[in-house]
Design a protein around this nucleic acid. Sequence first.
DNA 1: CTCATTTTATGAACCGGATTCAAAATCGCT
DNA 2: AGCGATTTTGAATCCGGTTCATAAAATGAG
Lengths: 247, 247
Amino acid sequence: MATQDRKERQLAEREQLFLSAAREQICQDGLLSLQMAKVARACDYATGTLYQHFASKEDLLVAICSELVDKRVEIFNRLVTWNAPTRERIFGIAVGDIIFAHHYPEHFRLAQFVFTEVVWQAASAKRRQQLLETSKPMGDAVQRIIEDAVAAGDLDPHGRPLLEMTLGQWTMTLGMHNLVHAEGVLELYNLRDPYRMLLRQLNALLNGLGWQPQQDPFDEQALEALVQRIQRNVFADLCENGCNDKQ
Amino acid sequence: MATQDRKERQLAEREQLFLSAAREQICQDGLLSLQMAKVARACDYATGTLYQHFASKEDLLVAICSELVDKRVEIFNRLVTWNAPTRERIFGIAVGDIIFAHHYPEHFRLAQFVFTEVVWQAASAKRRQQLLETSKPMGDAVQRIIEDAVAAGDLDPHGRPLLEMTLGQWTMTLGMHNLVHAEGVLELYNLRDPYRMLLRQLNALLNGLGWQPQQDPFDEQALEALVQRIQRNVFADLCENGCNDKQ
DNA sequence: CTCATTTTATGAACCGGATTCAAAATCGCT
DNA sequence: AGCGATTTTGAATCCGGTTCATAAAATGAG
């Protein structure tokens, strides 16, 4: 009956409220000082109520991560429908991810933590499942771009699973987000402008995979132009006044 | 005087003892259940004594990581002195890392956790510094291989910092270790044999960077042969009876 | 509308484990 | 041996996540 629906809606709303409050606390004071009691208090609920939604602190973290992944999926989907050469679309995934990292600087920190044994094992199976399912569309999006690439003759998978083609891109991006957050590491080797370097390496990788049309990874002009074009055509709304992928 | 020396030596020995005990506990029961009191007890010391060496639990974790990195450095150094084409030597770094991951399955889990904001910020500046310094030689080793490659005409850095050449390899490897440990993720997309896929992607990347001699990333035979050769010539002692890079 | 019953919210109490620190033991030296 | 200085000890403290007995609210039958 209608009563049930209303109740469920309210429950969902409250969960949202908790998630927002928790996210804000993380942005404000860092992961380190997130406290369950504080989150509940900030929403004018008792601690116990918070536990009706999340089995543990780790559970809450995984849930926040899911929420952010959901937004990240939207980025990926833009590249699926963008009408451009497949090479630019797959490259655009990386560009989009960098933009995403600027908009939600907490996401990759959190994700790194969440996929840590300590958190992952402590979260409930349900939440873990949920995060995996929320993440699935990212893979699907990439898969579709690869399919298009193969169909267009831009890429030959040589009989390997299609997703394997972009595993290097995936891990490279992931690893770079890690490095960026590991304060002191890149500085140790005097490496500046990490995301720009990532894009150069990515171009090299795509070339090495034979993804057409090839692009000179050391042609700064061409790289800059391509990034600009992607920003303008796909992420205009996220890149107002002087957004760039540096920092 | 001599008394001082002896004392210092004993201190260092005790620290070693604590580190080993902690590492064993991690291997045994996982990061999750590492307890300071247990570590101290296992070494027949009081909790307080443990705290004379490590400012906090996080500090201890970073110290363990340093210890393991030290062993990892040894792997890197073998490739610096190996007499082979630079392309095989840089590739050997990845192969060595995979072997290392088999020998110390706890390392990359731990490293992922340690470079998390939560742990990194909670450790003392001193330990952080120590870990960075311990890590430095890995970069130096890679740098030397790149220098050799440039000198031999195998690679053209196009005016970029030399280390940037292998940043893709670094992040790719790092990211893959992360994925491997994130239980359920690779399964979600039906990706098997992650480290083998990593090596294929790496070959593609090195090709894309123009690192000579080029190698077909989809030539299974050639890949297998190269891996075998590296294992035999560089890591024979670590690969007795049927060690391979799969799993 | 009332009252019994079920469901949900509350927050103080509980608990585990990291960290501290006052007291005890040991050391180094004369 | 004796006496300050240094080190070790482990019980006490502290902190914050989690639980659960109690209170409050919702439900629904009469």
